[in-house]
């Protein structure tokens, strides 16, 4: 465990110093900070416009950071040969993969926390008449994004055990898009009575296989206040469990592939 934590800690230290990530983060934070200026133009729908825009910025920025961070996570170690000094120590490969992943997620968490703090500050200062309760309710969305991006990072780590970074960037990005879009498509297919049973079954199988990134998108309920959602926290916990299981599947499979990999 110490080994995993050490690797994770080092990964965090490195990730939060990577210039490309910091630039993406900076752009994200900047967008958040100027967002109230954008919606000043819109006299109507102040809160919703500001909330949807800022949450969208957080999600987009986090997704890019998550992918860019993880696709280079292991390839960089190989290229710089740091992996040799580590694997020649009493470190097992699975410890290395898990440690790198946890470090990446922790770094992502730090960056997303910074954006969330900015979000809260923007709403607290710029007001739009939102009470602290409403603002705190808003932070449910970034919490879900974090779980979502952790899953995305796991998918990218899995791919990174056998495809090069640039390919992985598009592969993971593609899976993220498909996973996002397929959830509502499946919802539509399964609730449409005209759809044939065979199509529904096929959609059900795909739904059970692809990572359902779309199901983490709960921001609508916090952007548009007042919707009657029963047990939102329970749903978030369900999705956390879902993400954990999927992450485990990705990482363990990644470990199996990586274990035989010639680095």
């Amino acid at each position: 465990m110490n080994v995993i934590l050490s690797i994770a800690k080092t990964t965090v230290g490195e990730a939060i110093r990577r210039r490309v990530l910091l630039i993406i983060l900076l752009i994200g934070v900047l967008f958040l900070a100027v967002a109230p200026g954008l919606s000043v133009l819109s006299l109507r729908q102040d809160f919703s416009v500001l909330a949807s825009f800022t949450l969208g910025v957080i999600k987009l920025t986090s997704a890019i950071i998550a992918i860019v961070l993880t696709v280079y996570l292991i390839p960089n170690e190989i290229e710089r040969r740091t992996i040799y000094t580590i694997l020649s120590k009493p470190v097992l490969r699975w410890q290395f993969v898990i440690g790198k992943y946890l470090g990446a997620v922790a770094a992502l968490g730090l960056m997303m926390a910074l954006m969330t703090v900015t979000l809260v500050a923007v709403f607290a200062i710029m007001g739009k008449g939102a009470s602290m309760d409403v603002i705190l309710n808003l932070t449910r969305a970034p919490v879900m994004f974090f779980i979502q991006m952790s899953l995305l990072a796991a998918v990218a780590v899995f791919f990174s055990t056998f495809v090069p970074p640039i390919t992985n960037f598009f592969l993971s990005g593609g899976v993220f898009m498909i996973g996002t879009i397929f959830s509502p498509v499946f919802d539509s297919i399964s609730s449409n009575e005209k759809t044939s049973g065979l199509v529904k079954m096929g959609a059900g199988i795909i739904h059970a296989i692809v990572p359902n990134f779309g199901m983490f998108n709960i921001e609508n309920s916090v952007i548009n206040q007042g919707q009657q959602i029963q047990n939102p926290t329970f749903f978030m916990l369900k999705m956390l469990l879902y993400a954990l299981l999927y992450i485990c599947a990705c990482l363990f499979l990644g470990v199996i592939v990586f274990d035989r990999k010639e680095v």
Binding site: E14, R81, T82, T85, S88, P90, V91
Partner: peptide, 19 residues
């Protein structure tokens, strides 16, 4: 792993975490 506890390796032109 047991052997790894008792050996060490200095790779050619190693790079470390520069930060």
């Amino acid at each position: 792993l047991e052997a790894h506890k008792k050996l060490s390796y200095l790779p050619e032109k190693p790079y470390y975490y520069e930060h």
